[in-house]
Nucleic acid binder design. Structure first.
Length: 232
DNA sequence: GGCAGCCTGGTT
DNA sequence: AACCAGGCTGCC
């Protein structure tokens, strides 16, 4: 990516975010979107912390630098000539942010998708929910990941939307889930993994009812749920 | 829709 | 050596 697209010489006007995408918007209108993927990290530090460095920025008046590392290279940077172009892309490619999704918006997104687990992983339905928080949200809402989307209407859609908002907000409150790689921009590990009710707990007892949690591949991802609390 | 494939690295 | 992983695209 040319240096100009990396915002060289820019003055940062603001940051923006929807779901898992973060945008650095410059005063001249350029915008750079960062997607971390599974192993990416973006942080301020005086030196890199790993070998898989893809971009670095120096900031006037600061000794530390901004670093983008991504060992697995599932993440990426996308440059936009204007913030409006970026927002248009977000509107096309992303649903409502998970922290703000409501039942009506969720119901709309569910149309045409078969299983609710697949729907929650689709960023056009809700932006910001991945495999961990999909399973956690479904457990909190008491909905089986195998439920057909067409059966989730009205009150169930409301409670699922509320569960998504709650799960994401709680995880953020705990600094995110550090299974292995995740670190904050301040290079700290999160601790939300200690409050996961189902993710990573296949075969262990459900914290609500004690039944052993089921684990199976759904929508191509390991999925864990309680067949008693959430139904088969 | 489902799913292989993209990568590296950690675990079994 | 084989398998698994927090995501996403594109191919069927």
């Amino acid at each position: 990516m040319p240096r100009a697209h990396l915002l060289e010489g820019a003055t940062v006007a603001r940051l923006d975010r929807r779901g898992k995408r973060l945008a650095i918007v410059a005063e001249d209108g350029r915008a750079l979107v960062v997607q971390l993927g599974m192993s990416g990290s973006l942080y301020m530090a005086t030196g890199r912390r790993g070998p898989h460095l893809h971009a670095e920025w120096s900031v006037d008046g600061r000794d530390d630098r901004l670093w983008f590392e991504d060992p697995r290279r599932f993440g990426g940077l996308t440059a936009y000539g204007s913030a409006q172009a970026m927002l248009d892309a977000w509107d096309r490619e992303l649903g409502p942010d998970g922290l703000q999704v409501d039942g009506a918006r969720l119901s709309k997104g569910l149309r045409g998708i078969r299983s609710v687990k697949a729907a929650l992983l689709d960023q056009r339905v809700v932006a910001g929910v991945g495999n961990i928080y999909a399973d956690e949200s479904l457990h909190l809402a008491g909905i089986s990941p195998r439920t057909r989307c067409r059966r989730i209407t009205g009150g169930r859609a409301e409670s699922l939307a509320k569960a998504i908002r709650t799960v994401l907000a709680r995880a953020i409150g705990f600094g995110g889930s550090t299974i292995r790689d995740y670190r904050s921009a301040q290079d700290r590990k999160g601790s939300a993994q200690v409050i996961h009710a189902v993710y990573g707990r296949g075969g262990l007892p459900c914290l609500e009812c004690g039944a052993p949690l089921r684990s199976a591949a759904l929508a191509g991802r390991t999925t864990v749920w309680c067949a008693r609390c959430q139904g088969r």
